[in-house]
């Protein structure tokens, strides 16, 4: 069967690879194919793919650089923020100290003034108290003399004013 088929196809051998009558045909079409593939590849496909790959590489590199830059910016911003915060803190502490000092000064002044007033008032009070006490003491001796004179009179004695006064004064001192 196969022999006949081969015979019909005009082939002399059983191995088509060694049928040299078809070689020029295959070689011709192979060369055509190779030339076509070579031109399509070297003119269109390979430059395009190479460009795309290079493009992607540069895009990635750029993106990485941009990301790095942004990161630096973020770090700088954070530093600035921290600096500002520290400054504000120092400033606030200064203001607080100043305010405290002022308040202290006012307070001291007010305290001193108040002390003076209090001292004055206290002295005044002392004086009036002394007056009152003196008045009272005088009144007491007066009353004592009167009471003593009355007592002496009541007891039937004649009250010598001088003696009574001396006695009362001595008792009051005693």
């Amino acid at each position: 069967m196969a022999t006949e088929a081969h015979g019909e196809a005009g082939q002399a051998v059983g191995m088509p690879q060694l049928d040299f009558s078809t070689w020029p045909n295959q070689i011709f079409w192979l060369l055509v194919t190779l030339v076509v593939i070579y031109f399509v590849l070297s003119k269109i496909a390979l430059p395009r793919i190479g460009a795309v790959l290079a493009d992607r590489k540069s895009t990635i590199t750029n993106d990485l650089a941009a990301a790095e830059e942004l990161k630096q910016k973020a770090v700088a911003a954070e530093k600035a923020y921290n600096d500002a915060l520290a400054n504000a803190r120092t400033e606030a502490a200064k203001i607080v100290a100043q305010a405290k000092a002022e308040i202290q000064k006012d307070l001291d002044a007010a305290t001193a003034k108040a002390d003076v007033e209090i001292a004055a008032k206290a002295a005044e009070s002392e004086k009036s108290i002394a007056e009152i006490r003196d008045g009272a003491a005088a009144a007491v001796s007066e009353v004592a003399k009167d009471v003593a004179a009355e007592l002496v009179a009541a007891l039937g004695g004649a009250a010598d004013a001088k003696t009574v006064t001396a006695a009362v004064t001595a008792r009051l001192k005693g």
Partner: peptide, 9 residues
């Protein structure tokens, strides 16, 4: 016919 597939037609 293992070689028939290689016939150039």
């Amino acid at each position: 016919h293992p070689m028939d597939q290689f016939v150039v037609k």
